[in-house]
Nucleic acid binder design. Structure first.
Lengths: 200, 200
DNA sequence: CAGCTAGCTGTACATATGTACAGGAATGTG
DNA sequence: CACATTCCTGTACATATGTACAGCTAGCTG
């Protein structure tokens, strides 16, 4: 064995859980949360069936942790992205950057659908709502800074509206026949108009 | 028997299918599409298990028809609503009417969640996308007429943005702890600002 | 090295689920 | 009234699924 077994066990313990969680996200994105069975996830992750029940108390627990995993990642991502967006100097630039993000997200259709699926899961399970709320707040904060930089008279409201529009457009992208990333690209002029009108 | 058996059979044939479809929607809204099993739907509808397999070829068929049912209803509803919205005379009035609609929709949380669930189903199953597209187009047309009445310089784009914002806000409403209808109400000032900026 | 602990996995089992289908009930037909 | 037809339902069965758990392996300890 190339590395010590102790080390292997340690990294595998952390890695294994993530590995299973990410397999679950792929299953969700590809086939919906109804497809999240211990067996489907185990196969996707390339781990034995026993592992999924070892790391997660139950199917519900797995789904819950998957949401928390996504929510946490997204909060971090938006925190960083928010910093970058503060530097925009025109409505058009902000719109372009946000559409770039949407296109990037839509490129991985499976991951993108998984996020919406988990959001719905939060709609049904109150214990998941706090994580969902944090996720949502982080997204809005990331845009609010930029709207502030652009001199919006009400950055929080404008950020809320811009994020809502992006989420709504994103949702629409999912049910489009053609390439989701291309569909997202088509919304560029629309978002430019929105932000110009709000901040201009 | 108060009515002739012929008549009863006829209305029951039409009624029974709808009855099952609507039970399915309640199950979806309450527990997600993973909960849509023949047995759960049959129990919710108060019909024997055999009925669900008699009227629908399979579980997938049931889900497909549920989406088509919702999509068709929504297209009709938006067509009518679009007529009414054409008469608005100010951005504020349009925003208020649209928020009223959102509040009304959010009041039936179960039905509202069901719509989002079915939308995701369309994201995963290409054969459902046409119905989803029609639904989405109808929603946008219903607002485009009003934006036109308000003298928007680009009614189609503005309608697309307003609808996207409403859909995004609606999605956010679902994961709120408090009363969804109340949460929807809180978005009234935001939507007023959006439409005033776009059409004003 | 013997024994111990902790991490992990294969397997088994009760239950849930999709679905087929035989047969019953109601209606139409001669 | 006998028969055919159509609509419907209870039941049965193969399969899928969640989950418990016995036992295995690898490393640690004395």
């Amino acid at each position: 064995m190339p590395i010590s077994l102790t080390e292997m066990t340690e990294t595998a313990t952390a890695g294994r859980r993530e590995q299973i969680l990410e397999a679950a996200l792929r299953v969700i994105g590809r086939s919906g949360r109804q497809a999240v069975t211990h067996r489907a996830v185990a196969e996707e992750a390339g781990v034995p069936l026993g592992s999924t029940t070892y790391y997660f108390d139950s199917r519900d627990d797995l789904l819950r942790q998957a949401l928390e995993h996504v929510a946490t990642s997204e909060v971090e991502r938006y925190a960083k992205r928010g910093e970058e967006l503060r530097s925009v100097t025109s409505p058009r630039e902000l719109a372009d950057r946000l559409i770039d993000d949407l296109v990037a997200a839509a490129e991985d259709r499976v991951a993108y659908i998984a996020e919406y699926e988990l959001w719905l899961e939060a709609g049904q399970r109150p214990e998941l709502r706090e994580a969902a709320q944090n996720w949502c707040d982080a997204e809005q904060r990331s845009v609010a800074g930029a709207m502030d930089s652009l001199g919006s008279s009400d950055p929080a409201t404008d950020a809320s509206l811009v994020v809502a529009a992006i989420d709504g457009l994103g949702e629409r992208v999912l049910a489009r026949e053609d390439d989701p990333a291309q569909a997202a690209e088509e919304f560029r002029p629309e978002l430019r108009r929105l932000i110009e009108r709000l901040a201009g």
